[in-house]
Design a protein around this nucleic acid. Structure first.
Length: 462
RNA sequence: GGCUAGGUGGCAGAGUGGUUAUGCAGCGGCCUGCAAAGCCGUGUACCUCGGUUCGACUCCGGGCCUAGCCUCCA
């Protein structure tokens, strides 16, 4: 069982070998808490949650840090706009993030550091960068001097000179080089700020991740992960800060970047106004279906989000859950996951291939004639799905499939009773009338040996 | 302009130098009062032009097209 990961640094798949198998370290860039998370924000959370699960199967001690950015000008703007305290905003959306991610089956990381709890570390790091000649103070700001770091641009494969030539940014007058970036900036009375050697101010965006990863994981970490759009400038800047501060040759040994979620092939982003908010989607769709859909494409590929894809995920999960229920596999059997599923995941998190194996396993389970064989296969199906964070809670799934504010469960069940009475009396015309009427409202019926089950038609719930 | 990723069956989406991806949809069958669900069977797809090779969707080169980054962004 060898885990292979595609490393952005080398642009190659590499065997994963931790620096210390007794303590594997991993950092993923988490949310800036100023509004609800959209699906594009959820993708890395789901993917790297899966990686965390996988690592935990192989190593006794995996430390996964996923930060909360709770100081940022977008937060300030949101607070100002809504006329409420910054702390109210960050608390509200941190809680919403936790709830939304939990609904997607994303477990908590080992540590979830907050930027505002690490101001002392940030300030210390900036002081050290100044001492070492990599940063300078100017007009209340402290800037990182990219000219002092030869490897700047190595991660994102950018040439510093070309970047300067093509820079579209307005260059602040206090910068030595156009590529220099802010480590610390001054705050006015209305902005959140902390006392520092450079006056009252607040950290720039990139430094918090460097400070928090060093504080919780160490100066050199195994894995650093995030969305593709963070490669430059965010991760490039993190590398510069961290390596220059600690005087190390390496910051993160493996860099993982997920592709974007798109809508009609365009990147989902706030500026395009095509975001799909997890919190809203959860009103009508099971979180597990969203997780399934997010895992149905390889993490480095773009993933096109659509209602039809979501409907498909619901339909597929319906079948998988049914197969599982009918296999008679009890809750926790201690079964081991199918090796083919693990092998797919260990090959750079090939989740589509893993899901293909899950589906293959489900077919074998449903086909098995002998009861004990079927139960055994069902147990393997369940254990294998657990690695992916799927198929764990049939009752929650059924409940989610019936949840819809426009549906009155009691009324439906009363109608079903009427229909079954008609069926018993062999008045099939009356029975079919009721079924057709329910079907029009998007309710599907299913007569089985143990009575009639119902659910909201996949995709029709919204 | 610089850099990156990708173009696979009706749709989504893996993968491989010569053998079935998988899912959804469709079609036929079994089952069912009729349905639904399930199961069985069914579809030989790989942008284009050259090259390498006994053989390429898979390797190499050119072209066309799409998306992304270079500015806050997962």
């Amino acid at each position: 069982m060898a885990l292979t990961l595609y490393n952005t640094l080398t642009r190659r798949k590499e065997a994963f070998v931790p620096q210390d198998p007794e303590r594997v370290t991993m950092y993923a860039c988490g949310p800036t808490v100023y509004n609800y998370a959209h699906i594009g924000n959820a993708r890395p959370a789901v993917i790297f949650d899966l990686l965390y699960r996988l690592l935990q199967r192989q190593y006794p001690n995996v430390v996964y840090a996923r930060n909360i950015t709770d100081v940022d000008d977008k937060i300030n703007a949101a607070a100002h706009e809504q006329g409420i305290e910054i702390g109210v905003i960050t608390k509200r959306f941190t809680e919403a993030y936790h709830a939304d991610m939990a609904a997607l089956g994303v477990g908590p990381p080992t540590v979830e550091p907050r930027a505002t709890d690490h101001i002392a570390e940030i300030v210390a790091m900036i002081e050290r960068l100044i001492e070492r000649g990599h940063a300078y103070a100017a007009e209340g700001h402290v800037l990182f001097d990219v000219g002092t770091f030869d490897d700047y641009g190595a991660l994102s494969r950018r040439d510093r000179r070309e970047m300067i030539a093509g820079a579209r940014v307005e260059v602040a007058p206090y910068k030595n080089n156009p590529g220099d970036f802010v480590l610390w900036k001054p705050s006015d009375a209305t902005q959140p700020g902390w006392d520092s050697p450079w006056g009252r101010g607040r950290p720039g965006w990139h430094i918090e991740c460097s400070a928090m990863s060093a504080a919780h994981l160490g100066e050199v970490i195994d894995i650093h992960a995030g969305g593709q759009d963070l490669v430059f400038p965010h991760h490039e800047n993190e590398v510069a800060q961290s390596r220059c501060c600690h005087g190390r040759e390496t910051f993160a040994r493996y860099w993982l970047h997920n592709g974007f979620v798109t809508v009609e092939k365009r990147k989902m982003s706030k500026s395009l106004g095509n975001t799909q908010i997890v919190h809203d989607l959860l009103e009508h769709w099971p979180g597990e279906a969203m997780r399934y859909l997010l895992l149905s494409a390889h993490y480095r590929q773009p993933l096109d989000w659509s209602e039809s894809a979501l409907t498909q995920a619901v339909t597929t999960l319906d079948r998988l859950y049914r197969t599982l229920a009918e296999s008679g596999a009890a809750g926790d059997t201690g079964a081991e996951p199918d090796p083919a599923v693990l092998a797919a995941l260990e090959d750079d998190l090939n989740t589509p291939a893993a899901l293909a194996e899950i589906n293959r396993l489900a077919r074998e389970t449903a086909q098995a004639d002998e009861e004990t064989v079927r139960a055994g296969l069902g147990a393997v199906l369940r254990a294998s799905s657990a690695v992916l964070g799927l198929l764990q809670d049939p009752e929650a799934w059924m409940a989610a499939r019936r949840a819809d504010d426009q549906v009155d469960a009691e009324e439906i069940e009363a109608l079903i009773e009427q229909r079954n009475a008609a069926r018993k009396a062999r008045d099939f015309a009356a029975a079919d009338r009721i079924r057709d009427a329910l079907a029009e409202r998007g309710i599907e019926l299913e007569d089985g040996p143990e009575g009639t089950r119902w659910q909201v038609r996949a995709g029709g719930g919204a």
